[in-house]
């Protein structure tokens, strides 16, 4: 039995269907990410699991018990909010103790657990600070500690890293994943950042228009996107369709090839490889790699990503306007819906 079972979950705000018939099973101890653009329904699903929104239809079960209509304070789940939602009038330790105090945990026990939680998020010694005396990353950790100290069976994280700068975000991604393994709690993580989702998750549910488009392991999502939307949202996608598909591939339908799977002007190409001739229109030097936008004679533009193993920046920049041949292995090419 799954820890969380969601069946037929729907929610509309006015005439807008935010969530439209979502089914989802989440296993205990899993790190699952709800990924999608804003307005795709991922946050609404999270808020319904937390109890902040009541679904129009459908059910949510936790540990086999239906919690669909329970208020937030009666659910064994805790949330880490996008804006941290720390209580500004309480110091850090009081913030962390709040949930335990509400639960009427004895004072000493409470303090002990709060200090442990603080230690867990590596903020020992910050207990008497007020939230406004902390940096964004520190507040994030306090919010995490405040939720974890309740030892919920599920932790809900609503774009918790969204407000942090890139460096800190990458660091926190690693810490969060480690923490999750350490405490063994189920994490349901909402983000619109596909890279974040790919890095951290055991499974990813890709949302669009209130529906789950694809639910799978990160590698599968990336390498075998089920449809055009997933292909486009997760990573950069090259879509070959219509006439171009007939000319280049000799078949009908919509196909995709990931940019890093395409070689540019490579001599030794296997006989099974696809070939296509085109002109380089744009060159973007990214440091470890270079991105080329190539207009093919077949009438489609493909993005190609090439590792800068030998070439200097001047060399790659001078390639603009050159005529080139692109090639890729047949197994890199997938048909999407």
């Amino acid at each position: 039995m799954a820890l969380i079972e969601i069946r037929g979950l729907s929610k509309a705000f006015g005439s807008v269907k935010a969530v439209d018939g979502v089914d989802l099973d989440i296993e205990s101890g899993e790190f699952i990410t709800l990924l999608g653009p804003s307005g795709s329904g991922k946050t609404t699903v999270l808020r319904m699991i937390a109890g902040f929104e009541v679904p129009d239809s459908g059910t949510i079960k936790l540990n086999g018990e239906e919690i669909t209509d329970l208020p937030p304070y009666d659910r064994d789940v805790n949330t880490v909010f996008q804006d941290y939602a720390l209580f500004p009038h309480m110091d850090v330790i009081t913030n962390i103790e709040y949930g335990l105090r509400v639960e009427k945990v004895a004072k000493e026990e409470r303090r002990k657990r709060a200090l442990e939680a603080l230690d867990q998020v590596r903020l020992s010694g910050y207990g008497s600070r007020k939230p406004n005396q902390l940096s964004g990353g520190q507040r994030q950790r306090v919010a995490l500690a405040r939720a974890l100290v309740k030892r919920p069976s599920v932790l809900l994280l609503d774009e918790p890293l969204g407000a942090l700068d890139l460096k800190l975000r990458q660091q926190m991604q690693i810490e969060l994943k480690e923490l999750q393994r350490e405490v063994g709690i189920t994490f349901i993580f909402v983000t619109h950042d596909q890279e974040e989702a790919l890095t951290m998750s055991d499974r990813i549910a890709v949302f669009d228009k209130g529906k789950i488009q694809q639910l799978d392991r990160p590698a599968a999502i990336y390498e075998r996107p089920i449809n055009e939307f997933v292909a486009g949202f997760v990573g950069v996608s090259n879509l070959i369709e219509g006439d171009a598909a007939s000319k280049l591939l000799g078949k009908r339908g919509t196909f995709t090839v990931r940019p890093e799977k395409i070689s540019i002007d490579s001599g030794g190409v296997a006989s099974t490889a696809r070939k296509a001739i085109g002109t380089i229109k744009e060159v973007e030097y990214l440091g470890p790699a270079t991105r080329f936008n190539v207009d093919l004679e077949a009438g489609v533009r493909l993005v190609v990503l090439k590792q800068n193993t030998q070439e200097s920046s001047q060399e790659v920049m001078s390639m603009r306007g050159k005529s080139v041949t692109l090639s890729w292995e047949l197994e890199s090419e997938y048909q999407v819906q």
Partner: peptide
Amino acid sequence: LPSSVLDASADLGAKPGRTFREV
């Protein structure tokens, strides 16, 4: 008052009366 702060209080187990008093 950010609504997330009220949500957070409920999320941590506080009933509305307590949220009102303490937050």
